[in-house]
Amino acid sequence: MSAVNSSILTPEFFILTGVPGLEAAHIWISLPFCFMYIIAVVGNCGIIYLISHEEALHRPMYYFLAMLSFTDVTWCTTTVPNMLCIFWFNLKKIDFNACLAQMFFVHMLTGMESGVLMLMALDRYVAICYPLHYATILTNHVIVKVGFATLMRGVILSTPFTFLTKRLPYCQGNFIPHTYCDHMSVAKVSCGKVKVNVIYGLLAAFLIGGFDIFCISVSYTMILRAVLTLSSTDARRKAFSTCTSHIGAIVITYVPALFSIFTHRFGGKDIPHHVHIIIANLYLMLPPTLNPIVYGVKTKQIREEVFKLLFREKDVFDMK
Protein backbone atom coordinates (compact mmCIF):
# COMPACT_ATOMS: atom_id res chain seq x y z
CA MET A 1 0.00 0.00 0.00
CA SER A 2 2.81 2.41 0.86
CA ALA A 3 4.45 1.76 -2.50
CA VAL A 4 1.18 2.50 -4.29
CA ASN A 5 0.67 5.68 -2.30
CA SER A 6 4.23 6.74 -3.01
CA SER A 7 3.74 6.28 -6.75
CA ILE A 8 0.54 8.32 -6.62
CA LEU A 9 2.09 11.12 -4.59
CA THR A 10 5.14 11.26 -6.86
CA PRO A 11 4.12 10.35 -10.43
CA GLU A 12 6.62 8.90 -12.87
CA PHE A 13 5.56 11.37 -15.53
CA PHE A 14 3.24 14.24 -16.36
CA ILE A 15 1.03 14.70 -19.39
CA LEU A 16 1.31 18.12 -21.02
CA THR A 17 -2.02 18.66 -22.76
CA GLY A 18 -0.93 21.56 -24.95
CA VAL A 19 -3.40 24.43 -25.36
CA PRO A 20 -6.59 23.28 -23.60
CA GLY A 21 -9.73 23.77 -25.64
CA LEU A 22 -7.79 24.27 -28.88
CA GLU A 23 -6.47 20.74 -29.42
CA ALA A 24 -7.99 20.61 -32.92
CA ALA A 25 -6.01 23.71 -33.89
CA HIS A 26 -2.63 22.53 -32.54
CA ILE A 27 -1.15 22.19 -36.04
CA TRP A 28 -2.14 25.74 -36.97
CA ILE A 29 -0.92 27.10 -33.63
CA SER A 30 2.42 25.35 -34.13
CA LEU A 31 3.21 27.09 -37.43
CA PRO A 32 3.85 30.64 -36.13
CA PHE A 33 5.75 29.28 -33.12
CA CYS A 34 7.93 27.12 -35.38
CA PHE A 35 8.60 30.11 -37.65
CA MET A 36 9.43 32.33 -34.66
CA TYR A 37 11.75 29.65 -33.26
CA ILE A 38 13.69 29.41 -36.53
CA ILE A 39 14.10 33.20 -36.62
CA ALA A 40 15.17 33.21 -32.95
CA VAL A 41 17.82 30.51 -33.41
CA VAL A 42 19.23 31.89 -36.67
CA GLY A 43 19.11 35.52 -35.53
CA ASN A 44 20.65 35.04 -32.10
CA CYS A 45 23.29 32.57 -33.26
CA GLY A 46 24.14 35.02 -36.05
CA ILE A 47 24.63 37.84 -33.53
CA ILE A 48 26.81 35.64 -31.31
CA TYR A 49 28.92 34.62 -34.30
CA LEU A 50 29.23 38.21 -35.51
CA ILE A 51 30.29 39.56 -32.12
CA SER A 52 32.78 36.77 -31.51
CA HIS A 53 34.44 37.03 -34.94
CA GLU A 54 34.40 40.77 -35.69
CA GLU A 55 37.01 42.67 -33.71
CA ALA A 56 35.15 45.97 -34.19
CA LEU A 57 32.37 44.55 -31.99
CA HIS A 58 34.66 43.52 -29.13
CA ARG A 59 33.23 46.17 -26.80
CA PRO A 60 31.23 45.93 -23.55
CA MET A 61 27.93 46.86 -25.19
CA TYR A 62 28.21 43.97 -27.65
CA TYR A 63 29.46 41.51 -25.06
CA PHE A 64 26.24 42.14 -23.13
CA LEU A 65 24.29 41.74 -26.36
CA ALA A 66 26.00 38.38 -26.92
CA MET A 67 24.95 37.37 -23.39
CA LEU A 68 21.38 38.39 -24.21
CA SER A 69 21.41 36.41 -27.48
CA PHE A 70 22.81 33.31 -25.77
CA THR A 71 20.15 33.58 -23.06
CA ASP A 72 17.43 34.07 -25.66
CA VAL A 73 18.31 31.08 -27.82
CA THR A 74 18.72 28.83 -24.76
CA TRP A 75 15.50 30.17 -23.23
CA CYS A 76 13.26 29.29 -26.16
CA THR A 77 15.07 25.99 -26.81
CA THR A 78 14.07 24.73 -23.36
CA THR A 79 10.38 24.84 -24.33
CA VAL A 80 9.70 25.11 -28.08
CA PRO A 81 11.02 21.71 -29.30
CA ASN A 82 8.96 19.99 -26.60
CA MET A 83 5.94 22.13 -27.52
CA LEU A 84 6.25 21.21 -31.20
CA CYS A 85 6.44 17.51 -30.30
CA ILE A 86 3.10 17.93 -28.52
CA PHE A 87 1.53 19.77 -31.45
CA TRP A 88 2.92 17.60 -34.27
CA PHE A 89 3.39 14.10 -32.86
CA ASN A 90 1.07 14.12 -29.83
CA LEU A 91 4.07 13.32 -27.60
CA LYS A 92 2.63 14.71 -24.39
CA LYS A 93 4.42 12.59 -21.81
CA ILE A 94 7.31 14.15 -19.86
CA ASP A 95 9.28 12.47 -17.09
CA PHE A 96 8.70 13.90 -13.61
CA ASN A 97 12.35 14.87 -13.10
CA ALA A 98 12.61 16.18 -16.69
CA CYS A 99 9.60 18.39 -15.97
CA LEU A 100 11.29 19.77 -12.86
CA ALA A 101 14.50 20.36 -14.84
CA GLN A 102 12.58 22.21 -17.55
CA MET A 103 10.87 24.31 -14.89
CA PHE A 104 14.23 25.21 -13.36
CA PHE A 105 15.77 26.29 -16.66
CA VAL A 106 12.70 28.30 -17.70
CA HIS A 107 12.76 30.34 -14.48
CA MET A 108 16.55 30.56 -14.31
CA LEU A 109 16.80 31.85 -17.88
CA THR A 110 13.91 34.24 -17.28
CA GLY A 111 15.96 35.73 -14.45
CA MET A 112 19.03 35.81 -16.70
CA GLU A 113 17.11 37.66 -19.41
CA SER A 114 15.98 40.30 -16.95
CA GLY A 115 19.44 40.56 -15.39
CA VAL A 116 21.22 41.05 -18.72
CA LEU A 117 18.75 43.79 -19.69
CA MET A 118 19.58 45.49 -16.40
CA LEU A 119 23.32 45.21 -17.09
CA MET A 120 22.78 46.69 -20.55
CA ALA A 121 20.98 49.66 -18.98
CA LEU A 122 23.95 50.19 -16.65
CA ASP A 123 26.26 49.95 -19.66
CA ARG A 124 24.34 52.74 -21.41
CA TYR A 125 24.41 54.79 -18.20
CA VAL A 126 28.20 54.55 -17.92
CA ALA A 127 28.68 55.19 -21.66
CA ILE A 128 26.58 58.37 -21.66
CA CYS A 129 27.21 59.78 -18.19
CA TYR A 130 30.90 58.80 -17.85
CA PRO A 131 32.17 58.44 -21.44
CA LEU A 132 35.80 59.20 -20.57
CA HIS A 133 35.91 56.42 -17.97
CA TYR A 134 33.83 53.88 -19.92
CA ALA A 135 36.73 51.63 -20.89
CA THR A 136 38.26 51.68 -17.40
CA ILE A 137 34.97 51.00 -15.58
CA LEU A 138 33.61 48.23 -17.84
CA THR A 139 36.71 46.11 -18.31
CA ASN A 140 36.54 42.51 -19.51
CA HIS A 141 37.15 41.35 -15.94
CA VAL A 142 34.20 43.38 -14.65
CA ILE A 143 31.95 42.09 -17.45
CA VAL A 144 32.78 38.48 -16.60
CA LYS A 145 32.13 39.11 -12.90
CA VAL A 146 28.75 40.80 -13.36
CA GLY A 147 27.71 38.20 -15.95
CA PHE A 148 28.59 35.38 -13.58
CA ALA A 149 26.79 37.14 -10.71
CA THR A 150 23.66 37.44 -12.87
CA LEU A 151 23.85 33.73 -13.73
CA MET A 152 24.29 32.72 -10.08
CA ARG A 153 21.39 34.93 -8.99
CA GLY A 154 19.14 33.11 -11.45
CA VAL A 155 20.40 29.70 -10.31
CA ILE A 156 20.04 30.47 -6.58
CA LEU A 157 16.56 31.99 -6.83
CA SER A 158 15.25 29.31 -9.25
CA THR A 159 16.51 26.25 -7.36
CA PRO A 160 13.83 26.47 -4.60
CA PHE A 161 11.11 26.15 -7.26
CA THR A 162 12.31 22.60 -7.91
CA PHE A 163 12.29 21.54 -4.25
CA LEU A 164 9.02 23.31 -3.42
CA THR A 165 7.32 21.56 -6.33
CA LYS A 166 8.89 18.16 -5.72
CA ARG A 167 7.67 18.04 -2.10
CA LEU A 168 4.02 18.37 -3.12
CA PRO A 169 1.71 15.33 -3.28
CA TYR A 170 0.16 14.70 -6.71
CA CYS A 171 -2.97 12.72 -5.99
CA GLN A 172 -5.29 14.59 -8.38
CA GLY A 173 -3.75 13.17 -11.52
CA ASN A 174 -0.77 14.08 -13.67
CA PHE A 175 -2.36 16.14 -16.45
CA ILE A 176 -0.86 19.64 -16.81
CA PRO A 177 -2.93 22.00 -19.02
CA HIS A 178 0.13 23.68 -20.52
CA THR A 179 2.75 23.27 -23.25
CA TYR A 180 5.69 23.25 -20.84
CA CYS A 181 6.38 22.80 -17.12
CA ASP A 182 5.79 26.12 -15.44
CA HIS A 183 6.07 26.41 -11.66
CA MET A 184 2.47 27.31 -10.83
CA SER A 185 0.99 25.13 -13.59
CA VAL A 186 2.67 22.08 -12.04
CA ALA A 187 1.90 23.15 -8.47
CA LYS A 188 -1.81 23.54 -9.25
CA VAL A 189 -1.98 19.85 -10.21
CA SER A 190 -1.07 18.99 -6.63
CA CYS A 191 -3.63 18.16 -3.97
CA GLY A 192 -1.40 19.70 -1.28
CA LYS A 193 -1.09 23.24 0.01
CA VAL A 194 0.65 25.50 -2.46
CA LYS A 195 0.61 28.70 -0.40
CA VAL A 196 4.39 28.54 0.10
CA ASN A 197 4.85 28.08 -3.65
CA VAL A 198 2.68 31.11 -4.41
CA ILE A 199 4.48 33.29 -1.85
CA TYR A 200 7.94 32.27 -3.02
CA GLY A 201 6.96 32.76 -6.67
CA LEU A 202 5.91 36.34 -5.94
CA LEU A 203 9.04 36.90 -3.82
CA ALA A 204 11.35 35.63 -6.58
CA ALA A 205 9.56 37.77 -9.17
CA PHE A 206 10.02 40.81 -6.93
CA LEU A 207 13.69 40.08 -6.17
CA ILE A 208 14.52 39.62 -9.85
CA GLY A 209 12.03 41.64 -11.88
CA GLY A 210 11.39 44.34 -9.28
CA PHE A 211 15.09 44.93 -8.61
CA ASP A 212 16.01 44.95 -12.31
CA ILE A 213 13.17 47.29 -13.30
CA PHE A 214 14.20 49.64 -10.49
CA CYS A 215 17.84 49.67 -11.68
CA ILE A 216 16.76 50.19 -15.30
CA SER A 217 14.45 53.05 -14.28
CA VAL A 218 17.19 54.76 -12.25
CA SER A 219 19.72 54.30 -15.08
CA TYR A 220 17.45 55.85 -17.67
CA THR A 221 16.46 58.68 -15.36
CA MET A 222 20.14 59.56 -14.99
CA ILE A 223 20.67 59.13 -18.75
CA LEU A 224 17.75 61.45 -19.49
CA ARG A 225 19.12 64.09 -17.14
CA ALA A 226 22.58 63.85 -18.71
CA VAL A 227 21.26 64.00 -22.28
CA LEU A 228 19.02 67.01 -21.61
CA THR A 229 22.03 68.97 -20.38
CA LEU A 230 23.75 68.61 -23.77
CA SER A 231 23.67 71.85 -25.72
CA SER A 232 23.72 70.30 -29.18
CA THR A 233 20.52 68.84 -30.61
CA ASP A 234 22.58 66.47 -32.75
CA ALA A 235 24.48 65.26 -29.67
CA ARG A 236 21.20 64.62 -27.84
CA ARG A 237 19.83 62.71 -30.83
CA LYS A 238 22.96 60.52 -31.06
CA ALA A 239 22.87 59.83 -27.32
CA PHE A 240 19.23 58.78 -27.47
CA SER A 241 19.80 56.67 -30.58
CA THR A 242 22.30 54.48 -28.71
CA CYS A 243 19.51 53.55 -26.28
CA THR A 244 16.65 52.87 -28.69
CA SER A 245 17.53 49.22 -29.32
CA HIS A 246 17.81 48.51 -25.62
CA ILE A 247 14.53 50.29 -24.86
CA GLY A 248 12.88 48.16 -27.55
CA ALA A 249 14.28 44.98 -25.94
CA ILE A 250 12.96 46.10 -22.53
CA VAL A 251 9.46 46.70 -23.91
CA ILE A 252 9.46 43.37 -25.79
CA THR A 253 10.50 41.47 -22.66
CA TYR A 254 8.69 43.14 -19.78
CA VAL A 255 5.30 44.02 -21.32
CA PRO A 256 4.31 40.40 -22.19
CA ALA A 257 5.84 39.19 -18.90
CA LEU A 258 3.91 41.65 -16.72
CA PHE A 259 0.72 41.04 -18.70
CA SER A 260 1.10 37.28 -18.23
CA ILE A 261 1.83 37.60 -14.50
CA PHE A 262 -1.03 39.97 -13.73
CA THR A 263 -3.63 38.14 -15.81
CA HIS A 264 -2.53 34.83 -14.31
CA ARG A 265 -2.68 36.15 -10.74
CA PHE A 266 -5.63 38.52 -10.84
CA GLY A 267 -7.62 37.88 -14.00
CA GLY A 268 -7.79 34.11 -14.09
CA LYS A 269 -11.59 33.87 -13.94
CA ASP A 270 -12.22 36.48 -16.63
CA ILE A 271 -9.71 35.31 -19.25
CA PRO A 272 -10.06 31.85 -20.91
CA HIS A 273 -7.36 29.38 -19.93
CA HIS A 274 -6.17 28.87 -23.51
CA VAL A 275 -5.47 32.61 -23.70
CA HIS A 276 -3.24 32.31 -20.61
CA ILE A 277 -1.30 29.47 -22.26
CA ILE A 278 -0.83 31.29 -25.58
CA ILE A 279 0.31 34.46 -23.76
CA ALA A 280 2.75 32.40 -21.67
CA ASN A 281 4.25 30.95 -24.85
CA LEU A 282 4.43 34.33 -26.55
CA TYR A 283 6.17 35.69 -23.45
CA LEU A 284 8.93 33.11 -23.99
CA MET A 285 9.06 33.52 -27.78
CA LEU A 286 8.74 37.25 -28.50
CA PRO A 287 12.04 38.44 -26.94
CA PRO A 288 14.24 35.78 -28.61
CA THR A 289 12.51 36.39 -31.95
CA LEU A 290 12.40 40.18 -31.98
CA ASN A 291 15.62 41.12 -30.16
CA PRO A 292 17.94 40.16 -33.07
CA ILE A 293 15.69 42.08 -35.47
CA VAL A 294 15.58 45.16 -33.23
CA TYR A 295 19.34 45.21 -32.69
CA GLY A 296 20.08 44.35 -36.32
CA VAL A 297 17.93 47.21 -37.61
CA LYS A 298 18.66 49.84 -34.95
CA THR A 299 22.38 49.28 -34.28
CA LYS A 300 24.53 50.87 -36.97
CA GLN A 301 27.70 48.95 -36.11
CA ILE A 302 25.93 45.58 -36.39
CA ARG A 303 24.39 46.55 -39.74
CA GLU A 304 27.79 47.59 -41.04
CA GLU A 305 29.46 44.37 -39.90
CA VAL A 306 26.68 42.29 -41.45
CA PHE A 307 27.15 44.05 -44.78
CA LYS A 308 30.92 43.61 -44.57
CA LEU A 309 30.50 39.91 -43.85
CA LEU A 310 28.02 39.44 -46.70
CA PHE A 311 30.19 41.26 -49.24
CA ARG A 312 33.26 39.40 -48.02
CA GLU A 313 31.50 36.07 -48.56
CA LYS A 314 30.31 37.28 -51.98
CA ASP A 315 33.85 38.21 -53.00
CA VAL A 316 35.15 34.79 -51.92
CA PHE A 317 32.38 33.09 -53.88
CA ASP A 318 33.11 35.17 -57.00
CA MET A 319 36.82 34.33 -56.79
CA LYS A 320 35.94 30.64 -56.86
Rank of each mutant, 00 (worst) to 15 (best):
I277G: 08
H53K: 15
A135E: 06
M184G: 04
P272L: 00
P169F: 00
L202S: 11
V42L: 14
A40Y: 04
I29W: 13
I278S: 00
Y170F: 11
P20Q: 04
H183T: 12
T74A: 10
Y283G: 13
I48L: 14
T253D: 00
G209N: 13
H107T: 09
D315P: 03
K195A: 11
T242S: 08
N281K: 06
N197M: 00
V42Q: 03
V186C: 03
I15V: 12
K166V: 15
H133Q: 11
M61I: 10
S245P: 00
A257L: 01
C171Q: 14
F311M: 13
T229L: 15
C171G: 13
P292T: 01
I38F: 15
V297P: 06
D123M: 05
T165L: 03
I48V: 14
M61P: 15
L157G: 05
P287E: 01
L282I: 14
M61E: 09
C181P: 13
V80Q: 01
S69K: 07
T150S: 12
I278W: 06
P60E: 00
C215N: 08
I51T: 00
L119K: 10
I216W: 00
I293Q: 08
L9W: 12
S241Q: 11
F307G: 08
R312F: 09
I8F: 00
Q172I: 13
F266Y: 14
S231N: 15
L16A: 05
V186S: 06
F14E: 07
S245E: 00
F89E: 05
N90R: 09
L122Q: 14
F175H: 10
I27L: 10
L100C: 11
I51K: 04
A226P: 02
A127Y: 04
T136P: 04
F104G: 09
K238Y: 12
M67V: 10
F148R: 08
I279N: 13
A135W: 05
S52H: 09
V306E: 07
M108N: 12
H26D: 03
F163K: 06
F163P: 11
L282K: 02
Y295H: 15
R59S: 08
T244E: 06
V155K: 06
F240D: 01
D72I: 04
S219A: 14
F163L: 07
N90Y: 13
L228S: 11
V294N: 01
M120A: 14
I137G: 07
A121F: 04
H273T: 07
Y49I: 05
H183N: 08
T242M: 01
E304P: 09
P272K: 08
I271N: 15
H273M: 04
H273R: 07
D182G: 09
F96E: 00
F262V: 07
I213F: 01
P272S: 03
I176H: 02
L65D: 02
A204V: 03
F105R: 02
C45H: 09
K93F: 05
T229V: 15
F89I: 10
I176C: 14
F148I: 12
M103K: 02
I137A: 06
A235Q: 10
Y295A: 01
A121R: 09
D315H: 09
I261A: 13
S231T: 11
H58E: 03
L109Y: 05
K238I: 10
A56S: 07
M36F: 12
A135N: 14
G115M: 02
V41D: 01
K193A: 13
I27P: 02
A127C: 09
N174P: 07
G267H: 03
